[in-house]
Amino acid sequence: MTIRRLTSKDLSAYRAIWADGLMKVPTAFLFGAEEVRAIPNKDVEKMLEVNLTLGAFDDARRLVGFVSARRGGPQRMQHMADIGPLYVRSEAQGQGFGRALMDALLQQLATAGIQQVELCVDVENTGAQKLYHALGFHVFGRRPRSVLIDGDGRDDFLMIKALDGTDLTRGA
């Protein structure tokens, strides 16, 4: 297994795995398949440059998973980052790729001075929730109808983790 940052050289593989994820687990993504197909390559390359997107490669050097994080935009939010999506191809699940991606991402974010990370996870995605809990995330809210997929509202849990040792559960 190899974990590394994705670059514009990975564009085709990244778009392919993103499309795979949208087909197989549409509830794991903010964008719909039509929206993703409409994003020009130059914009996806810019996303790879600006956001921290890590890829997991199997022994055959095939991209089998990815995770992204975006640092807060305004100065007052530069201490935090939003994580997502995290996706691992179904045939590679259960082999530690998701955990390795998240471990590497959290380490790089902490090294970059990020103090806390947040993510959203579909309330029915118990596998991802189990991973996030094991990594030290905790639920701090529920967003009803976070997304609409084919007209149906999907709820998300909002999860948070401190990277600097601060207890974020106070008052929770």
Results as ranks from 00 to 15, higher is better:
residue 74 P to S: 03
residue 82 D to G: 05
residue 139 V to W: 12
residue 17 I to K: 04
residue 131 L to R: 04
residue 105 L to P: 08
residue 86 L to A: 07
residue 42 K to P: 00
residue 141 G to P: 14
residue 82 D to C: 04
residue 114 I to T: 14
residue 167 D to R: 06
residue 47 M to Q: 08
residue 14 Y to I: 00
residue 15 R to D: 01
residue 28 A to R: 03
residue 11 L to N: 06
residue 6 L to M: 05
residue 141 G to C: 11
residue 157 F to E: 14
residue 16 A to D: 04
residue 50 V to N: 11
residue 48 L to R: 06
residue 78 Q to H: 10
residue 72 G to F: 11
residue 126 T to E: 14
residue 59 D to V: 11
residue 22 L to H: 13
residue 148 L to V: 09
residue 53 T to H: 09
residue 23 M to D: 12
residue 172 A to G: 08
residue 54 L to V: 14
residue 84 G to I: 11
residue 45 E to R: 01
residue 133 H to L: 14
residue 3 I to H: 09
residue 8 S to I: 03
residue 149 I to R: 14
residue 40 P to R: 15
residue 6 L to E: 04
residue 21 G to I: 04
residue 153 G to N: 11
residue 30 L to T: 13
residue 126 T to F: 13
residue 96 G to N: 03
residue 31 F to A: 08
residue 56 A to N: 06
residue 147 V to R: 15
residue 1 M to Y: 05
residue 108 Q to R: 09
residue 89 R to S: 08
residue 98 G to Y: 00
residue 61 R to Q: 12
residue 131 L to H: 06
residue 129 Q to K: 12
residue 98 G to V: 01
residue 132 Y to K: 11
residue 159 M to K: 15
residue 46 K to D: 11
residue 116 Q to P: 00
residue 145 R to M: 12
residue 13 A to F: 02
residue 159 M to I: 15
residue 106 L to F: 05
residue 125 N to K: 13
residue 120 C to T: 15
residue 167 D to S: 06
residue 116 Q to F: 01
residue 138 H to V: 13
residue 7 T to D: 04
residue 2 T to Q: 14
residue 98 G to K: 03
residue 63 L to N: 01
residue 14 Y to W: 09
residue 147 V to W: 13
residue 112 A to C: 00
residue 156 D to A: 10
residue 108 Q to I: 07
residue 93 Q to N: 02
residue 83 I to Y: 10
residue 151 G to D: 08
residue 40 P to S: 15
residue 141 G to V: 12
residue 139 V to Y: 13
residue 147 V to A: 14
residue 26 P to Q: 13
residue 164 D to R: 00
residue 140 F to G: 07
residue 24 K to W: 09
residue 124 E to R: 14
residue 69 A to F: 04
residue 162 A to W: 02
residue 19 A to Y: 02
residue 61 R to G: 01
residue 17 I to G: 03
residue 168 L to T: 05
residue 147 V to D: 06
residue 1 M to L: 09
residue 77 M to I: 01
residue 133 H to P: 00
residue 171 G to A: 12
residue 85 P to R: 05
residue 115 Q to T: 02
residue 64 V to Q: 07
residue 28 A to Y: 05
residue 101 L to S: 02
residue 131 L to I: 08
residue 52 L to H: 09
residue 52 L to I: 12
residue 147 V to Q: 15
residue 104 A to V: 00
residue 70 R to E: 13
residue 94 G to W: 14
residue 42 K to Q: 15
residue 107 Q to V: 06
residue 37 R to I: 06
residue 106 L to I: 02
residue 72 G to T: 01
residue 6 L to F: 05
residue 88 V to D: 04
residue 139 V to H: 10
residue 30 L to V: 10
residue 144 P to I: 10
residue 79 H to Q: 03
residue 87 Y to A: 03
residue 81 A to G: 09
residue 135 L to V: 05
residue 155 D to C: 10
residue 12 S to W: 04
residue 46 K to H: 07
residue 55 G to W: 06
residue 92 A to G: 10
residue 114 I to C: 06
residue 86 L to W: 05
residue 138 H to F: 15
residue 34 E to D: 15
residue 112 A to L: 02
residue 168 L to S: 08
residue 80 M to D: 04
residue 128 A to H: 07
residue 133 H to D: 12
residue 55 G to P: 00
residue 19 A to G: 00
residue 17 I to H: 04
residue 168 L to E: 06
residue 27 T to N: 11
residue 32 G to S: 12
